[in-house]
């Protein structure tokens, strides 16, 4: 469960990205945050992932107040979240397998276990036959799917995805949303953001609309 209680976020340059947000995301729920560019969607997701911290108010993830966690606690929290970034944040000096394996290396899994789990994750996103491929040979959609594979390889209970369908055509976007639906069916809580909300018709989810840092719907 993720809870935002009267959360505001003001950056060092004085820009206020979020203003008094209160929002609860229950376990097993899919919540889609929509809004125009600059509405505060990414900031909201980064707060939930403990990448940034609220200026005022509290963010609780699985009943842990992120502001009270120390550095180690934040690392452990992030290891238990699946994070999909808008710009993918893939490593081009590693191949497909190496990128998907990174969270497991961090968690200290053995090589054998890493091999099993990475192949299972790549299979889920349809990249099993490309495990040795270099990233430059992947299309935008494949890179996005790899980013999702990396997010799920640790079998997280919460998946946070920032604009996962942002730069994809409709067909690819539908595939990605299908993936999220399948993860949700096995109990994964999903918080994702999208700027236009198109293609969400078939996704059974709760929509939250942000405008200038405030929830408007």
């Amino acid at each position: 469960m993720i809870t935002f209680s009267s959360v505001s976020k003001r950056y060092a340059n004085g820009y206020e990205a979020l203003k008094g947000i209160s929002l609860t995301i229950e376990n097993g729920e899919i919540v889609v945050v929509t809004g125009h560019s600059g509405a505060g969607k990414s900031t909201l997701l980064r707060l939930a992932a403990g990448i940034e911290f609220a200026s005022t108010g509290n963010v609780l993830v699985n009943n842990q107040n992120l502001a009270q966690l120390k550095e180690t606690g934040i690392s452990v929290l992030r290891q238990n979240l699946g994070l999909v970034f808008q710009d993918h944040k893939l490593l081009f000096d590693r191949n497909v397998f190496g990128n998907a394996a990174l969270p497991l290396e961090i968690a200290g899994f053995t090589r054998i276990e890493i091999g099993k789990r990475v192949r299972a994750a790549l299979d889920k996103v349809g990249l099993l036959n490309r495990e040795k491929a270099d990233l430059v040979s992947l299309s935008g959609g494949e890179q996005q799917r790899l980013c999702i594979a990396r997010a799920i390889v640790n079998r997280p209970s919460i998946l946070i995805a920032d604009e996962p369908t942002g730069n994809l055509d409709q067909a690819y976007a539908a595939t990605i949303l299908d993936l999220f639906r399948s993860f949700n069916q096995v109990g994964v809580t999903i918080l994702l953001s999208t700027h236009d909300g198109s293609g969400l018709e078939h996704l059974k989810c709760r929509r939250v609309e942000l405008e200038h840092g405030v929830i408007v719907r």
């Binding site: 990448i51 550095e71 180690t72 690392s75 452990v76 929290l77 992030r78 290891q79 238990n80 979240l81 994070l83 970034f85 944040k89 893939l90 490593l91 081009f92 000096d93 590693r94 990174l102 969270p103 961090i106 990396r150």
Partner: peptide
Amino acid sequence: KDEIVVARLIGAPRRF
């Protein structure tokens, strides 16, 4: 640097 940044984002502790 990229690997360090990404690893930290997805939960790598400092010691890792």
